[in-house]
Write a protein that binds this DNA or RNA. Structure first.
Length: 649
RNA sequence: GGCCUCGUAGCUCAGCUGGAUAGAGCAACAGACUUCUAAUCUGUAGGUCCCAGGUUCGAAUCCUGGCGGGGUCACCA
């Protein structure tokens, strides 16, 4: 069961690295990629040529380090020349001047250079940027060409005994945005989930409903149906707790306690740790729940019917939440159907000696060479474990879709499990084994500490959504900008703003990091927030409404760019690269941060320069057009993240 | 205890995989709406980048060792 657990945990990639000592040739400069950029590539070529001619040095262009020039200095790209000093037996000033002159003379688009303490800054002609911008505006799609890859993304993966909470929200938003981003990067994506629809927890809700429900339904009580089922899960836990406490006073319990192995242990602690054993061995409620599980496995009609009924309630509730969050799935896998998968693969693996069988009949794999340990893949009684079904499900998905890669969005507490799973799939030689990725994300904490379902310290996903929308409504009413819109339109706008605040708040954090979720901050709409970015978009739309029909082509004669305009152009033209980076790292936060930076630049632009009141028709047309390009990118970027743009707010 | 992971401003987070004087937002304080939506912008203040060594021309970033938080080590899922 994937379960988005209500406890906490931290992060990802753990590699056992063996470090060898390599002796590098003296002249082998530390290797680093040139910024993936046609300008720096050209400059690098020229620098290499110059080094050859003046110093008789053979240097590969990729070994040159370029950065974007920092804001405080003049220029666009910076070559760091320290690494070249030893090779050329030169000093920063001389070498910098020689290289700078060479590049300026040779490359047309480089206007000038300046040299500051070993940093060689190159400034490009403004017209180069303007041309970049013009070609950007004619680009009709931000989607990359097909990579030929088909990737399955598994996310959400809920349990069917209680409603979705904040942890699921992070999971779902990550999974959804990652899927979109992968698509934009040219992959075909299948969105799926594994639903934990079986097991003792589900039986608890079923039993509680049978015992205490008096036949009531979500309809009869007017309750959202997954919450309705969740209520019975809680009722079971309460009844069980009462039963347990009563039992503790009885003779059996007394004698067990008196004979505890650790005499130091106080009563409260003892019974806390004994709870599970009590459930399995003494509890009448426990016995009934377990019987129900056995009946379910035996396929007893009455139990199956009840199970289907309660699960259908939960699914209906989940669908509402998914709708509200704006996500959907292409397929669903149910553990009730997959939990027996994988056994045949294990058998086959035993004959291929990938797995080994112990005397008791249990089957294991030795993963020590991967830095892991021995892992059980089949119990001695022949039944499967978590790993077994994951192996089976992976292959089934491959057969179902012919995908050549899979991404599992699962909290980082399961890092070890996925490391082992991937190692096993590799040993088995599964055709997709090279493109497996565990998108491991940190747990969500509250400012008061971790969420604990037992203590009722969980943030319910539906409540959360309601809260942010209410907050958006409150703020919007205060502002009064959209009073003239119809009630429906207004509600739609509140919805978009609220959801933007919530989604952005969660997605702006690097997934690997454990995050603290402050409910008060999550409804903030100022600063680094979703609404801040929506506001930039709305301002642009407002300008467009007032601009009327403009001949935007006259803007092409405007080449005297302001700094802030240049800044915006640079950001805009880097957009597709941002998408790529975000896709490669499976990290939507790169994209959210990019959108923030772009919106921020626009807000500054909006404050610094006149748009409709620009000094010339050319400047006006250019600025209106620039705004439209910003709006286009923001809308597209937010679309990938899963946030909609309002036209007014 | 073994292994994994995180530690950056009062708070929440960036920091482009080793480069220039470590950046944003929130909170605080001071400014900017007769003019394109002030959910905005500008400024002030706020730092021992957990500590100590090491590698390097150069370290928040890499290595080693500590300290602190979290996770994980089931015939659970």
């Amino acid at each position: 069961m994937r379960g988005v657990y209500v406890c906490v945990f931290s992060t990802t990639l753990f590699l056992t690295c063996v470090h060898g000592n390599f002796i590098l040739p003296y002249f082998c400069i530390k290797y680093r990629n040139v910024m993936d950029n046609k300008f720096t590539t050209e400059i690098a070529k020229s620098v290499v040529e110059c080094l050859k001619v003046k110093y008789d040095l053979d240097v590969i262009p990729e070994s040159l380090l370029f950065n974007e020039t920092r804001k405080e200095f003049e220029g666009d790209y910076t070559l760091v020349i320290f690494p070249l000093l030893k090779l050329t037996k030169s000093n920063p000033n001389d070498l910098g001047a020689i290289l700078g002159e060479a590049v300026v003379n040779e490359i047309e688009f480089v206007e000038s250079y300046n040299l500051i303490k070993g940093f060689l800054n190159f400034k490009l002609n403004a017209s180069v940027w303007f041309e970049e911008y013009i070609s950007f505006t004619t680009k009709e799609s931000f989607y990359s060409e097909s990579s030929g890859k088909k990737t399955i993304v598994e996310f959400s993966s809920p349990n069917t005994n209680k409603p979705l909470h904040l942890g699921h929200a992070r999971n779902i938003l990550l999974g959804w945005s990652c899927s979109n981003i992968l698509e934009a990067a040219g992959h075909e994506v299948v969105r799926t989930q594994i639903v934990n629809d079986r097991g003792i927890a589900i039986c608890k809700s079923m039993l509680a409903w049978q015992l205490f429900g008096n036949g009531e339904t979500p309809e009869s009580t007017g309750t959202k149906s997954d919450h309705f089922v969740g209520k019975y899960y809680v009722l079971f836990e309460q009844a069980f707790k009462t039963e347990y406490i009563t039992w503790q006073a009885g003779e059996t319990a007394r004698s067990i306690y008196e004979n505890r192995p650790n005499k130091e242990q106080v009563e409260a602690d003892f019974f806390k740790s004994y709870k599970n054993k009590y459930f399995n061995e003494y509890s009448p409620l426990g016995a009934q729940a377990k019987k129900m599980l056995l009946d379910w496995e035996a396929g007893l009609d009455s139990v199956i019917d009840l199970w289907k009924k309660m699960n259908s309630w939960v699914y209906a509730g989940f669908e509402q939440t998914y709708d509200q969050l704006g996500v959907s799935f292409d397929s669903y896998y149910y553990e009730s159907e997959t939990y027996k998968l994988g056994k045949d693969i294990i058998e086959e693996g035993v004959t291929r000696e990938i797995f080994y069988k112990k005397a008791d009949g249990s089957v294991w794999i030795d993963l020590e060479s991967e830095g892991l340990d021995h892992k059980l893949v089949l119990r001695s009684d022949g039944t499967s474990v978590y790993m077994t079904q994951d192996i089976g499900t992976a292959r089934k998905r491959y057969e179902d879709t012919e995908a050549n890669g899979m991404v599992y969005v699962v909290a980082d507490e399961q890092d070890y499990h996925f490391q082992a799973l991937f190692a096993i799939l590799k040993r088995l030689g599964e055709p997709y084994h090279e493109d497996l990725f565990h998108l491991s994300y940190g747990m969500v904490d509250l400012p008061t500490g971790r969420m604990k379902s037992r203590e009722g310290k969980v943030v319910d996903a539906d409540d959360l959504v309601q809260e942010v929308i209410d907050e958006a409504r409150k703020n919007a009413v205060e502002r009064g900008e959209i009073e003239d819109a119809s009630a429906d339109e207004r509600e739609e706008i509140y919805n978009k703003i609220g959801m933007a605040a919530l989604k952005f708040f969660i997605l702006k954090v690097n997934p690997k990091k454990r995050m603290i979720f402050n409910p008060e901050e999550s409804v903030d709409m100022q600063g680094t927030t979703g609404p801040y970015i929506q506001n930039a978009y709305v301002r642009i739309q407002s300008i467009n409404r007032k601009a009327g029909d403009l001949d935007l082509t006259v803007g092409k004669s405007y080449t005297k760019l302001e700094d802030i305009e240049l800044d915006i152009i640079k950001k805009l033209t880097s957009y597709t690269k941002q998408i790529q980076a975000s896709a490669e790292q499976f990290d939507p936060s790169l994209l959210t941060n990019f959108c923030y930076e772009l919106a921020k630049a626009y807000h500054k632009f909006y404050n610094d320069v006149r748009i409709l009141g620009a000094e010339s028709e050319g400047a006006k047309a250019f600025r209106v057009n620039l705004g439209n390009q910003v709006a286009r990118v923001l809308k597209h970027g937010f679309g990938l993240i899963g946030i909609e743009m309002p036209n007014r707010m």
